[in-house]
């Protein structure tokens, strides 16, 4: 594994987070900014607003043009302005970021979105984007357009079905923030099996362990008492990779129902990393997948690697 070209380039990571309003999005934005700063990643902040019915779309656009003449900006741009201010408050030491002023006139309409043009200051890698439409569709388009590595989403109970759709359809890895406490020292729990996503999960695990100094545990769960060669091989390769990076790792092999075992083992003091499901998407839709079931049952923050 160590000889292969890495799947993640830690020097050019791009993270994306979505905001809806100052009222509801502060925790997600705060965590997004924190995570991006830890990984020295660029952060895209996308506001996805409701799109007017196509019947009246041109009337709404005509009104917005007229409102521009009165210096009344799009409500989505107001949220993005708030997001930029919040990011400045979160990184008071970032002098380059502090210098950047939000100008609602400096926007560029392209590829079905509106991008706020920010001056390119060294040390400030922020994209502010306004989109209108359905959240999953718009985030998917944004990720495809900008090749984001990771989407950061909240995980509130009342938006579980939305989280499911995001996990199912977003083409990037997804970090579900549920109950993440930034002051808490978590243990990394990496779920290892013989699926294709395990290699990338291991790379993410190593990167997080290096950045945050969290202890690493790998967990391999078999439904029977016999662990196949694929599972054993994957666990060995994972350990070898961590060893090569000088990261200590504890290995666990348990038997039982995979999801129940993950959830019980993780409790609320682990940060879970697992690969996205390799099940046929139709089966995932009908019967659910391990990531979705784990998300449903667990209180731990989860990184689902795609």
């Amino acid at each position: 594994m160590t000889k292969k070209k890495p799947l993640i380039d830690p020097k050019s990571l791009k993270f994306l987070t979505a905001v809806s309003s100052a009222e509801y999005s502060k925790p997600t934005l705060k965590m997004g900014a924190l995570i991006a700063s830890v990984f020295d990643a660029s952060l895209g902040v996308v506001y996805v607003g409701e799109r007017a019915s196509e019947f009246h779309g041109s009337a709404v656009n005509l009104t917005r043009t007229n409102l521009d003449n009165w210096n009344i900006i799009h409500p989505g741009l107001e949220v993005l302005e708030w997001a930029l201010d919040e990011l400045k408050k979160l990184s008071p030491e970032n002098k380059e970021l502090a210098k950047i002023q939000f100008n609602p006139d400096h926007v560029y309409e392209e590829d079905g979105r509106v991008r706020v043009i920010l001056p390119e200051e060294k040390g400030c890698r922020i994209e502010l984007v306004l989109r209108e439409g359905e959240l999953v569709d718009q985030m998917r388009k944004e990720i495809q357009l900008e090749s984001y590595d990771l989407a950061i989403i909240g995980g509130s109970q009342n938006k579980r079905h939305l989280a499911h759709s995001l996990i199912q359809y977003l083409p990037s890895s997804i970090f579900v923030l549920q109950k993440l406490n930034p002051r808490k020292k978590y243990k990394l729990l990496l779920l290892v099996d013989d699926s294709a996503a395990t290699r990338k999960s291991v790379e993410w695990g190593a990167l997080i362990a290096e950045k945050l100094g969290w202890p690493v545990r790998t967990l391999t769960v078999s439904k029977t008492i016999r662990f196949g060669a694929g599972y054993q091989g994957a666990a060995d390769k994972a350990k070898a990779y961590f060893d090569s990076r000088g990261i200590e790792v504890e290995q666990f092999f348990l038997t039982g129902d995979p999801v129940r075992t993950f959830v019980e083992f993780a409790g609320d003091n682990h940060f879970v990393i697992m690969g996205a499901s390799t099940l046929n998407p139709i089966k995932q839709l009908l019967f659910g997948s391990k990531p979705i079931k784990t998300l449903e049952q667990s209180d731990a923050p989860i990184l689902i690697v795609r």
């Binding site: 607003g49 007017a52 019915s53 019947f55 009246h56 009337a59 709404v60 009104t63 917005r64 409500p75």
Partner: peptide, 15 residues
């Protein structure tokens, strides 16, 4: 908010 253009317009203000 969908029936009349004027209703859609005020709804688009977010207020």
């Amino acid at each position: 908010a969908v029936a009349a253009p004027a209703c859609t317009i005020i709804y688009s203000s977010g207020l």
